[in-house]
Amino acid sequence: MTMNANMIKIVMQRQLYSYFATPIAYVFILMFLVLAGVFSFYLGHFYEKGQADLSAFFNFHPWLYLFFMPAIAMGLWAPERQMGTIELLMTLPIGQINAVIGKFLAAWVFAGIALVLTFPMWITVAYLGDPDNGVILAGYVGSWLMAGGFLAIGSCMSVCSKNQIVAFIMTVVVCFIFMVSGVPMVLDSFAWAPQGMIDFIAGLSFLTRFDAIARGVLDLRDISYFLTMIALWLYLTQVVLQRNKAH
């Protein structure tokens, strides 16, 4: 089966249509923006820090994404299986890989739209001070990459269950595991393991990776980490899809 950019685009557009067909998408984006603001100003002490950067804003993204991204991804496959439209989708000459990628991209674009709409934060910091725009841009790119990682996990979980709520919860759990795998408390519990394995577990952590990005260090290794995560989880999506589509 080969990738076909045109088919990917058609599937993506259809999925985006479904996202925005109901007011839920707009309510969802609004909630995301409000919470992103609340976290930055109250928990992140954006003003009190007195720094002309958006670290107070970016630092909370992993935690926001932990609940928002599963909600975006849960509807990718579960309803298709629930409603039987998967039989239609899989018997159109689209190709499974194109369907998987197209749907994921729609979710990623949706997350990107929500992220872009946080631009008043950038305006605020630019108005109040003289921030390093490169650092902020790097933060946005990194945050979007991380969102992609969450969504790819969500895509796989969504094809595992016909029930969106189950898919949501499973995604939160798996994303949480990937987030905290780098914190000392978790790593300490692996003290018995060889150093190589501990390094590997620490390296899987979204938090550790994103930490550097939030500070504006867009390392190629971190970028390829998130892209690899996306590719891996989309591959798994396709494997599970092949197994589950007719059940």
Partner: peptide
């Protein structure tokens, strides 16, 4: 192909 139950994307 018309699958059983004529599934379609309801929100479209």
């Amino acid at each position: 192909y018309l699958p059983e139950g004529a599934p379609a994307y309801g929100e479209m």
